[in-house]
Amino acid sequence: MPKNTRLAFNHKPLIGDWLVIVASMVAVAVMFQQFWSFAPASQLKIRQGNQIIGTYDLNQARELRIKGPLGESIIVINNGQARFKQSPCPNQYCVHQGWLSHAGQVAICLPNQVSLQLMGAKSKYDSLNY
């Protein structure tokens, strides 16, 4: 039997390892900041078909009726949030998505071709327009 059968913690991280660990930690922190930044939204942009219906302030409570090919979609703005309240579409995905409050959040009603997009102080990367 060899003398040293006990598993010993002999190897300590080298300088390069520490560099890699610290760099990775920074990278992970940046990722959290980049992908998990839930900036509060200030404005709501509504689109119908290929045109922008308007940009509305989220601090003013109001109800909007947007005409689409199927009928009227009712959109409610309240307390810095917005949602589809009623929609003539068959599956109601847009209504079920509920309140939107973060910048960059989107709710789309494809059948009625109405989309809501929340805008922050500055517009972020988004998959609709990029």
């Binding site: 598993l7 010993a8 913690f9 002999n10 190897h11 991280p13 390892d17 660990i21 990775s24 930690m25 990278a27 992970v28 990722m31 959290f32 992908f35 998990w36």
Partner: peptide
């Protein structure tokens, strides 16, 4: 949204597996 979580897990287990292998 999942990227940071997976990256954190990769870093954590990467270090542990690396320590085991190096030792």
């Amino acid at each position: 949204y999942l990227i940071p979580i997976f990256a954190l897990a990769a870093l954590f287990f990467g270090v542990i597996n690396g320590l085991i292998t190096a030792n």
